[in-house]
Design a protein around this nucleic acid. Structure first.
Lengths: 147, 147
DNA sequence: CGAATATGTAATCGTCATTGTTACATTAAA
DNA sequence: TTTAATGTAACAATGACGATTACATATTCG
């Protein structure tokens, strides 16, 4: 299974916003930190806005900030905000209609996929953005530094 | 997150082999059923061979068959046999070295990814190939038909 | 032995998703 | 009104994957 890195980038963005609690941060600054292009960050922020996780303003002196306390944002919310709805995939071509196994296979697989993905999301739910910040602070000697 | 459909195809292949219990089946026949190219199936079979789930012979009259009882093959084994080791991805570019958050973020994310993926695989473990066959047989009116 | 059959594997093409980039209209603050 | 920022379109570059062709290799069977 291949994956995008949108989820990793989104967590990074949210962690930065949590650091700057309250202050609005520009996409340019966020992009500088995760070493990508501001447009990539803005596209991520659009998804996070839709999920009501961040609050973004346009105009001079504007930018984004968290929309909830870090304790109330969990990783499953972030995952669902920025990743495709379906993690697994069935083949694009339909199975041979003459084969009895192929016909039922797809829907059975769909159910199995959903179950596995729910299990994954339940695990992600256990970690909040506050946990992430705490771990990062504990591990980096640079806890108090500015970004 | 985007995904390949190797897992879905592999389950389909194994279900077909379970149907033909004992008999060797050619990649051409399997490919005909899932409506793809024999080479795609052979590449899948190579992965399933490495995982000791199937037994393949070359030469005239040869082909593949299951290497264990369907009851002893679970979906997590199949997943691990045919999918990439890492489901989640970190960005290809390294974070900005001047940003304290970015430095610890990667390893923290790696751990979170592993945990989520383990949760997903634990869920897949609950379903065996025998379960798959049973469900398919129950749902398709065509239980006894040849393939 | 030789013909037939099937796998293993390399090479290549087309498609698609994703990231990166530039450009610009729009919006809001100073 | 100037300045600074987002929203968004357009497009290139990259990379992964499925599909396909071709062929060497191995194995069975007559």
């Amino acid at each position: 299974m291949r994956t995008s890195c949108r989820f990793a980038m989104a967590v990074h963005v949210l962690a930065l916003l949590a650091y700057k609690e309250g202050d609005r941060v520009t996409s340019a600054l966020l992009a500088g930190s995760i070493n990508t292009n501001p447009v990539i960050v803005r596209r991520l922020l659009l998804a996070l806005q839709r999920a009501k996780l961040v609050d973004t303003c346009k105009g001079a002196g504007a930018g984004s900030r968290l929309n909830c306390a870090p304790r109330r944002i969990n990783m499953a919310q972030v995952y669902r905000a920025v990743e495709a709805a379906e993690t697994f995939a069935n083949p694009s071509r339909k199975p041979n209609p003459d084969c009895p196994v192929g016909q039922c296979m797809r829907e059975m697989l769909e159910e199995m996929f959903h179950s596995a993905q729910r299990a994954m999301e339940r695990d992600l739910e256990k970690t909040t953005l506050a946990d992430v910040i705490e771990i990062v602070k504990a591990r980096c000697a640079c806890a108090g530094k500015n970004i």
